[in-house]
Design a protein around this nucleic acid. Structure first.
Lengths: 274, 274
DNA sequence: AAGTGGTCTAGACCACTTC
DNA sequence: AAGTGGTCTAGACCACTTT
């Protein structure tokens, strides 16, 4: 039964004077009962999911944030605790949230261990995390090609920062990355004095406050072009695995496009069908 | 609280005479309360899952079977309906089971739409099911190579059935499959008079009663060998995507190993990271 | 001690399917 | 009408974390 929603819901104290409010309680006020007009037969737990998803997607909740507790959410949204739990269950298995017993439920951080790129292995070891060390081989600020600008969803001829890196496993070059960013997103990143760590996105967040929220990757294969062949030490025309990545920040804004080309003989992707 | 389990549990009628028992009820008797000795701190719903999983893996339940209803299972295993529901929820999202409201819960059939092989597309159409038509180009009964016998987990030098097929999209050859089966599993399959449909596993089940339960696939890329190049109409040495599949029937027994080689320019695999 | 998520129970009512 | 799964509620007790 869809019970009446009390519009008079408030978590704040009723006094007039504005007093400092704890961050947690403040944030709780975001969780309004969902828009019942658009409910249209959807189950309640789905509406709860949608509400949490919305707050993540619009940036009100960002990766690492603690969300209100289940009982709090239940009261705030006028549903039973079991319903909130089911909604959170679903978001947890989607890996959008994770729980920590006794502490609370948090918004997940993007996990690049899910990148297809982890399937570059040395030899044929199974599923183990293989450490790839990267070296920057070129960087600069250039006008982007039409193709790259289109992929970045910026005007053609925009200024871009270009970063090129080679990835090594045990001192053997395995792959090369070609990465482009809109210059206004990461101004100065082309400066040679800025050290680029293996995990580039950490730097971008620290230096520019731009969090990477999600990414899309497409995998294909092709023949190595001359430059790539030289950089990863194979013959020109040898098969290489091509990984194109589009990287997003808050609000579904693209911040990077990247093409990784790797030695096909070091790539192996295993999956189960059932 | 882990309540006492009544050892005297029985679903059958108490009379002595053996009377015909409905299949459903009969099967219900399989679901004994789980082995409490090995419970070791596991949650109850996990034990229920394990029990259902066990019955599927040992072949007591086979793909397409209807399992007992939630209330029946709850009574049979002396847990509350909610606990059974949670266990089934988990198995459903693992896709081991699927539910049909009003009818019941069934054991899933293997879904080869999950095969990596679906990523062979024509042009760049996104995610749409592309129809691949297959033609058998060779078949026979041979002594297997050591490598193939090893992958099939049979003695080296065993008799194998070999099937070779080319896959077409709109009359253009896209991929070629090399498939080996232990001869004793599919005797006579090498006979040219046996028509091989696009979906080979359906034939194997119909003719030999061997159900395919699951499969593993590994994706790599390499250069086209002379034979493959000729069959899919590319230059020798051109990059091809290589898919190795191991196919299992009941009891984790391997029934097929298959290598598919496809045009890399027709392959594209997209995923999201978050 | 208080608050969090984790497990489990016991029921209500609903929508769908079959008989 | 009876049985199925789907949703939702309202609690109990537990294990873990923080204060």
């Amino acid at each position: 039964m869809r019970q009446q929603v009390s519009k008079g819901f408030d978590m704040r104290s009723s006094g007039e004077a504005v007093v400092p409010i704890e961050k947690e309680v403040d944030r709780l006020a975001l969780f309004q009962p969902a828009d019942w007009d658009s409910a249209a037969g959807k189950p309640l737990y789905r509406l709860v999911e949608d509400e949490i998803r919305r707050l993540i997607n619009n940036g009100s909740l960002i990766p690492g944030d603690l969300i209100p507790s289940e009982p709090q959410l239940a009261k705030a949204m006028s549903v039973s605790p079991g319903t909130v739990k089911k909604a959170i269950d679903n978001l947890v298995w989607e890996k959008l949230l994770f729980r920590h017993q006794g502490k609370g439920t948090y918004v997940s951080k993007i996990n690049f261990r899910k990148s297809l790129f982890r399937f570059f292995t040395y030899g044929d070891a199974e599923g183990q995390p293989v450490r790839i060390h990267k070296e920057t081989t070129a960087r600069g600020r250039h006008v982007g090609s039409d193709d790259v600008c289109r992929r970045l969803n910026v005007k053609e001829g925009s200024d871009l920062v270009y970063i090129e890196r080679v990835g090594f496993i045990e001192d053997k070059p395995i792959l090369v990355e070609y990465s482009w960013w809109p210059a206004h997103v990461v101004p100065g990143l082309e400066d040679e004095r800025v050290h680029i760590p293996d995990y580039l996105y950490a730097l971008v967040f620290d230096k520019y406050g731009v969090p990477v929220i999600r990414a899309e990757e497409t995998l294909t294969a092709s023949a190595a072009d001359a430059k790539t062949a030289q950089m990863i030490d194979v013959e020109e025309g040898t098969p290489v695995v091509v990984l194109k990545r589009t990287t997003y920040t808050r609000g579904n804004r693209i911040v990077e496009v990247r093409t990784t080309k790797g030695r096909a003989d070091r790539f192996s992707y295993k999956t189960e069908i059932r």
